[in-house]
Structure formats: C-alpha cells, structure tokens
Design a binder for these strands. Structure first.
Lengths: 232, 232
DNA sequence: AAATAATGACTGACTGGTCAGTCATAGTGG
DNA sequence: CCACTATGACTGACCAGTCAGTCATTATTT
C-alpha cells in the first residue's frame, strides 16, 4: 500500500468464502430482470470498465472512486462489495484484461508458419488485439503505474510476460535454426515488441502533434528484422 | 468567509522553542559560508535533485513536498521561493535534464560517420548519457506522467523530440541515399529508439526477475537494422 | 572599524479542500 | 421473511500551498 497507516486500523472481517465469478461475461447494462448471479457479474464488469476509463484518463492516484462509481451506475460502497480496495481493483483490472493474451500468442508461436506470413500475423495480432482495443490503455497503465505495484509487476511478469517471451523466443530459435532470422534476435524478444510499446506511449503523448501509422511502423520494423541478409 | 471568533489580525507569538535543535540537526547541503548567490543556486539544485528522487520513487501525485523539502535539507516554504507550485517543479525538472540532449544528438547527426561507427556511437550515447544517468529516471517520469501534463508533453515534443527526430531522420535519409540502410527506416526514427525505451521501462518493472543487458540489446538491434542485405 | 539598520531568504505551523474507506440503514430476490 | 445486496452521508487521514515571523547577510552611518 502506498499509505499503510490508513487501512491498518480496522481489522478485516471478511467472511465471504465465495469464489469469484471470473467468467468473462459481457459488460452490458444490467437489466433489472436478470438473476442475481448475472446482475452481480454485470456489476463487476461495469465497475472494471468504469475503472479503466477513470484510471486511464486521470492515473491511478488521481482517479476518484466516486467517479468510478458514478460511471458504473453504482454507489461507492458497492465497489467495496466486489473489490477489497482501490489497489485491488487496479490489479484485477490488469489481470482480467491481459491474461487472455497469453494463449493467443502461444498459439501463434506453435503454428509453423512461413516467415512472411508470421511477420504479418504478429503485426495484425498487435494492431487488432491490442492497439485498437482497450488493452492498449491497460498496457499504458501497466507501464505508467506498474513501478509502484511490485506485486502486480511480479504477477504480470510471471503469468503473462515470461510466457509470451518464452513462446516468442522458441519461435525465433526455430527460425534461426533454419537460417530465416539472425541468431542474435532470439536472445532479445523485447526487440520485436519494442515499436509496439513505443506506439502505445506515443499515442498517449504526441499523437496530436505527429500522428503515427502504427501498422506501417510495425510492418517496417518486422520486415527489416526478418529480411534476408548477405552472408556474414 | 467565516472566521474563527478570536481571529483578528492579532499576531500570535508562537516562536518555536525547538528551533535551535532543529537547525543543529539539519544536514547542511549548502555550506553556510557561501555567498548568497552560490547558496541560492545550490538550493535550487538540491530541490530539483530531491524532487527527482521523490517523483521517481512515488510518482508525481504521491510524492509529498514535505519529503522533497526534507531530502533537500530545506523547509517546505523554500520550495515555493524557487518554483511556482508542484507542477512547475516537475516541469523544470524535465526541462533541465532533457534539453541538453538535443545538441549532443544533433552533433552526432551532422558528423558523417561510417555506418558501423555510427551504430556504435548511437548505442554508447544512449547507454552512457541516458541509461546510466538520472536521465533514465527523468525519461521514465516523462513516459509515466507525461500524459497528464499536455503542456509539458507539448514543450517536450517541440523542444526536444521533434528536433531529435528530425536530426535522426536526415541522417537516415543520407545513409539510405548511399544504400547503407533500407529506405523505410527514415520514416520511423522511433524504431531506432524503441529498444532503449523498452529497456528503461523494463529496468523499472522487471529487472529483478530477468536482468537485461541493455548495451547488448541495443547493439543487436542497431546491427540488425543496419546490416547489409541481399538486393530485393 | 564598529554599531545599527535594511533586506530578503528562509522557516514551519496552519488552513482548506480532497478522497479512500466505513457503516447504519434501506431495499429485494428467492 | 430474512439473508444478501446496495446505498451514500460521514469520518479521519492527508497534503499543497500560505504567510506571519525569524535571522543571516549586506548596506549605511557614525
């Protein structure tokens, strides 16, 4: 916690043993007619969605839970029925949005695709599944605020990043063995992702001064990396 | 405005009895012997340096000016003699640290260096002038907090980024004209910087799980980009 | 050169406003 | 009918920014 003194006072008397319904229900408006379970899941999603909006525009510290509640169409106290505290809400948000990426990327790594097709897939995956979705904002949040949440960074590294890196690395090794990409690349999968991250940062800070064609930049980069070379 | 009943303009005598003790305990960053002008400059620098530390570790919002003051060996009020407010302190910090980079990079762009030497210089410049200095922290701050300071982002874009990009771009164009680098690269100078930025982010979030050899990654990347290719 | 006055840099207790988290009370689905 | 869900006014911590007061340094007078 950022200010440990604040919440230490009251002992936590959380009795709920209920398993969290982590199923990805659609974040539609919550019809009054729906069953409790459905409404509950809807509420949770609405809160997460509202939190993403507020955290994205104001930053974690400056975001007000009152605003999150209003945006979610819920009272502030309700948030505390679904999340232990603000920090926990933040962590759940990141967790819920980024975990699903892993499977997609691992699948991409396992398919044995010809190099040009692969390059294309990587670019498209990034643009369509990240850059053009709210995942872009979540990753921006992770970049901006992650440093102050070491537990979250650790979770993210173990559950998401390490697995993605490992998948990309083995893919690069196989390609390198066939002589399709240079050896050195497999050691630094970060290099492949780098322009994507830069694009995310750029879009938040400088887009209005100098727009950036993300797809084209990614394509240029990947093609440069994967281009056939003269023998050394 | 409602005033507390006894409040007049009555000056209330409350000179601190602990004053002498406090002054004795204060770590004197600036020797009391120095002239006013010297001490003043020293104070400003001490405040900026302390602010960088506090902003870096807690983030802009969470950083307390009380802590900045303590770290600088100064009273809180003193900060307001040198900076209008917290935001202005932040802006001055970024401005003071990053503006000097421009000249260095423009000089690099103007020297007509052989490609392998140039690659080396770029990597070394980044590692020595940014990554191994506190500029790394300032850039991390810019990335993390810049979005909430549009004015600052604009200043930074105009005064720093645009000029760097322009220098790098013209350098790349000349190299492309000689056939030394691929044409596409000049359109996206961001690609060259990307791994450097990723390294800065990585070092803040994941270094403790998986250390990253920045120099080697940068070198790998630049060499891949600049490598001789088969004719297309 | 010493005494005295003027200056303005510096201090830190205090204020006003903010907001995370609580809990007494009010619904409502099963 | 009551356990579960939801509410929102409230509280206590917290902190940026203020300003009346202090005192070291510099300027002026004797």
């Amino acid at each position: 916690m950022l200010r440990p003194s604040r919440s230490r006072k009251t002992p936590i008397r959380r009795a709920s043993r209920r398993k969290r319904a982590v199923q990805a229900a659609r974040a539609a408006a919550v019809p009054a007619s729906a069953s409790r379970k459905v409404r509950s899941a809807g509420r949770r999603d609405a809160i997460l969605s509202a939190a993403l909006d507020e955290f994205s525009t104001r930053g974690f510290e400056a975001a007000r839970l009152d605003d999150v509640a209003r945006r979610a169409g819920v009272a502030k106290g309700t948030i505390y029925l679904y999340f232990r505290d603000k920090e926990s809400l933040f962590q759940e948000l990141i967790r819920a949005m980024l975990t699903p990426l892993v499977g997609t990327i691992e699948a991409l790594g396992e398919a044995e695709l010809p190099l040009p097709v692969l390059a294309d897939r990587i670019v498209e995956l990034f643009v369509r599944e990240v850059y053009e979705t709210r995942r872009k904002d979540v990753i921006r949040l992770m970049i901006s605020e992650g440093r102050r949440f070491p537990k979250l960074a650790e979770f993210y590294y173990r559950e998401v990043l390490a697995r993605i890196i490992s998948a990309v690395r083995s893919l690069l090794r196989r390609a390198a063995a066939r002589g399709e990409v240079p050896e050195g690349l497999a050691e630094f999968p970060q290099i492949i992702a780098a322009p994507g991250l830069v694009a995310i940062i750029w879009s938040g800070l400088f887009e209005r001064f100098e727009p950036l064609d993300v797809r084209k930049m990614m394509k240029t980069h990947v093609e440069l990396l994967f281009a056939p070379r003269r023998a050394t």
